[in-house]
Design a binder for these strands. Structure first.
Length: 487
RNA sequence: GAACCGGUAGCUCAGUCGGUAGAGCAGCGGUCUUUUAAACCGCUGGUCGUGGGUUCGAGUCCCACCCGGUUCACCA
C-alpha cells in the first residue's frame, strides 16, 4: 500500500523532472488576468471556426479530467466557479506546450490562453493556444466523480473534498452568506459588534466542561470560553445598549453529528428589552438568513421540510408539557410517576430536573417547528429573570426546529443579589466544572454597579447552517471538524 | 465514556463454507485530430487497520489495540 502510493507519486516526481527539463518551473509563478471559469462559461459560444475565431480567454485551475489521445486531447479545468473543457490540438500549440500536455496529471494546476467556443457536440470549450504550468501535484487525486465516498477520507483531505464534492464548496459559501446576513441585519438595527476574550479565568455562562490551559507569565490556569454571555453583559453595564459577538466557543465534551468541540455562537444583548423583544428579533434574523439563501422560505431538511414563515408558532413550556407528558409540570407525584414510566432514574434529582428530562424525552422530538417554547422552570435558568408574578418560572424561550434547539434567549437577570444566590444554589448540586452557574464574583460585582433590564439571545451558528443548508452532520458545515490526529 | 457497525490497490468496492488476493477507474506502454465516466489492446500495482492466537492453511475464526461511523450519555 505504501509501496504503491510511492509508485504513483514517483511517477509524478519523474514528470516534474521532465517539466523542469523543458525549462519550466514546476511550481509556477504569478499568473494575472485569468477570468473565473463560471464567467467564461457565460460568454457566447459559437462552434469553432478558423474563419470566425471566438473570444480570447485566459483561465487558471486544476486539471480534473484528461482524455488522452493522439494529436487531439481533451482536459477539464476546475476552479471554484466551475469547470470548462480544454481542447488541445497538436498544431495549435507550441512544441513545448504539447509536451506539457502529455505530462499533465490529474490534480496539476495550469493556466491556459485560448479561444472560447463550442465543440461539435456543443460542449463549452477553450481551445488552447498557450499553456502555463502553475503547480505540480505530487500525490494522486481521487478519480473525479468516483472518489470522495468515504467520510473519513473527505474530512482528512478537505482540500480535495472542496474540489471533488460540489456540495462542500457550496455549503462553505452558504455558511458565509448566513453569517454575513446576521451581521448586516444586526448592524442595521444598531447593534455594535465586539470581540471579547477567548481565555477566561472562570468559564461561565453555560453548563459545560471547559478546555483548560495555562498562562506562563502570570502562572495561572485559564479556560477557553464556553459562552460569550458574561463579558457581553458587562458591556451592557458599560452602556453599550445593543451589543453582539459572533465567536468560537469551546466545550470539552463528546463529538457527535451535532457536536464539535469548538463551534460558533452568536450572542446578542439589548438593554431595556426582554425575551419578547428577543422573540421578534430572532424571527426577523432567521427569516433574513433564509431569504439570503434565495431558496424560498420552505426549506427541505432530510425527509422533512421546514416553513420559515413568520410569525412562528409560540407555545408555553407548561402547556407543551401537559400535552405530551400528560400531567401538570408542577405536580410532583405525577411527574415522578411519568419519569418512572419513561425509565428515567429519579433518585436524588430535583423536581425541575425531572421535568426537563421528561420534556427532552417526550416533547422535543415532536416539535417540528419552527416554534418558540417559552417560560421555563426557573431553577434551570440561573442567569434568567423570573416572571414578576411567578418566581418559579423564568422568562426564557428556546426556538425548536425538528427537535433541534436553534436559539436560546431570556430576559437577563440583573439583580446582583439574586444572581449571587442562584450561582450558589447551582454550585451545590453539580461538580463545579459542569455547573451552568460558576460563581463569578467579578461578574456579580459588575451587576452591582447596575445593569439595565435587558433581553439576550444565543444562536448556535453551526446548527442554523445545518438546518438552512439541509446538512445532516455538523462535520459538513465546519471545514475542519476535530478528528483524532493520524500519522 | 458504553453498545453496535465498518477498515481489502491511489479512489470506489467485491471476496461464498477457512484453501493461490479480485473488478472498475486511476497509473504505465501502445492505437486514435471532436472526446464527454472517451474507446480499444497490453501491463503494473496489496504488510487485507495493527499485534497476538487457533489451524496443515486466516482477508475470512478468537483476543487485544488503533482509526472512523451510528446510537446512547452530555450539551448547542
Amino acid at each position: 500500500m505504501a509501496d504503491d502510493a510511492q509508485d504513483l507519486s514517483e511517477v509524478r516526481q519523474e514528470k516534474l523532472r521532465q517539466i523542469a527539463a523543458l525549462g519550466l518551473d514546476p511550481w509556477g509563478h504569478r499568473f494575472d488576468g485569468a477570468t473565473p471559469i463560471g464567467d467564461i462559461r457565460k460568454l457566447p459560444a459559437a462552434p469553432f471556426d478558423d474563419a470566425k475565431p471566438g473570444p480570447k480567454v485566459r483561465a487558471a485551475g486544476r486539471v480534473v479530467r484528461h482524455r488522452t489521445g493522439g494529436k487531439l486531447q481533451f482536459l477539464e479545468l476546475w476552479d471554484q466557479t466551475g469547470r470548462v473543457q480544454l481542447m488541445v490540438r497538436v498544431n495549435k500549440v507550441s512544441e513545448t506546450d504539447w509536451k506539457v500536455v502529455n505530462l499533465l496529471d490529474l490534480g496539476d494546476l495550469v493556466g491556459v490562453d485560448g479561444e472560447f467556443g463550442a465543440t461539435k457536440t456543443g460542449e463549452l470549450t477553450i481551445q488552447a493556444e498557450k499553456l502555463t504550468f502553475l503547480a505540480k501535484s505530487l500525490e494522486p487525486h481521487p478519480k473525479d466523480t468516483y472518489g470522495m465516498g468515504d467520510l473519513e477520507y473527505r474530512l482528512r483531505h478537505r482540500y480535495l473534498d472542496l474540489v471533488y464534492t460540489p456540495d462542500t464548496l457550496r455549503r462553505a459559501h452558504q455558511r458565509v452568506r448566513i453569517v454575513r446576513t446576521i451581521r448586516n441585519h444586526l448592524d442595521g438595527l444598531g447593534y455594535l459588534e465586539v470581540e471579547t476574550p477567548t481565555l477566561h479565568a472562570i468559564a461561565g455562562g453555560a453548563a459545560a466542561r471547559p478546555f483548560e490551559t495555562h498562562h506562563n507569565a502570570l502562572d495561572i490556569p485559564l479556560f477557553l470560553r464556553i459562552a460569550l454571555e458574561l463579558p457581553l453583559k458587562r458591556l451592557l453595564v458599560g452602556g453599550i445598549e445593543k451589543v453582539y459577538e459572533v465567536g468560537r466557543v469551546f466545550r470539552n465534551e463528546g463529538i457527535s453529528p451535532r457536536h464539535n468541540p469548538e463551534f460558533t455562537m452568536l450572542e446578542l444583548y439589548q438593554a431595556y428589552g426582554d425575551y419578547h423583544t428577543m422573540m421578534d428579533l430572532t424571527e426577523g434574523l432567521i427569516v433574513a438568513c433564509v431569504d439570503a439563501l434565495g431558496g424560498g422560505r420552505t426549506i427541505p431538511y432530510g425527509e422533512k421540510s421546514v416553513a420559515f414563515e413568520p410569525p412562528f408558532q409560540r407555545a408555553k413550556y407548561a402547556d407543551l408539557f401537559r400535552e405530551h407528558v400528560g400531567c401538570d409540570m408542577t405536580d410532583e407525584v405525577a411527574v415522578r410517576a411519568a419519569a418512572r414510566a419513561e425509565q428515567i432514574a429519579a433518585d436524588g434529582k430535583a423536581h425541575d430536573v425531572l421535568v426537563q428530562e421528561l420534556f427532552e424525552d417526550l416533547v422535543e422530538e415532536k416539535l417540528a417547528g419552527p416554534v418558540f417554547v417559552y417560560d421555563y422552570p426557573a431553577s434551570l435558568c440561573p442567569l434568567t429573570k423570573r416572571k414578576r408574578d411567578n418566581p418559579a418560572v423564568a422568562e426564557r424561550f428556546e426556538l425548536y426546529v425538528h427537535g433541534m434547539e436553534l436559539a436560546n434567549a431570556y430576559t437577563e437577570l440583573n439583580d446582583p443579589v439574586l444572581q449571587e444566590q442562584t450561582f450558589r444554589q447551582q454550585l451545590a448540586g453539580l461538580p463545579a466544572d459542569e455547573s451552568m452557574a460558576k460563581m463569578d464574583a467579578d461578574f456579580v460585582r459588575a451587576l452591582r454597579h447596575g445593569m439595565p433590564p435587558a433581553g439576550g439571545l444565543g444562536v448556535g451558528i453551526d446548527r442554523l447552517v445545518m438546518l438552512l443548508t439541509n446538512t445532516p452532520t455538523i462535520r459538513d458545515v465546519i471545514l475542519f471538524p476535530l478528528l483524532r490526529p493520524q500519522g
